[in-house]
């Protein structure tokens, strides 16, 4: 609940319990965190090889000789 409050404060969004049948919009593919896993991999590879920052997408995803 505290986490919920914190998040809602950060994002100015309400945090009332969402019922299981109210999740139709959230279930849409365009609402997924990674709707396109191949593009996500392309971006990771490109940005890791062109910028100094990387990571955040998960563990054990490995590296490359591009940086």
């Amino acid at each position: 609940m505290r986490i919920c409050l914190l998040l809602s404060m950060t994002l100015l969004a309400g945090c009332a319990t969402v019922q299981p049948w109210e999740k139709g919009h959230l279930a849409k593919p365009i609402m997924a965190f990674d709707p396109d896993p191949l593009t996500a991999r392309q971006h990771k590879q490109i940005y890791t090889s062109k910028e100094a920052a990387s990571g955040g997408q998960g563990v054990g995803t490995g590296g490359c000789g591009c940086n």
Partner: peptide, 18 residues
């Protein structure tokens, strides 16, 4: 942490240390 905020909003926050 992933939290459903409303029927139209969801947020995820991940901290990775390596």
């Amino acid at each position: 942490l992933t939290q459903v905020l409303s029927p139209v909003a969801i947020v995820q926050s991940n901290l990775t240390y390596s």
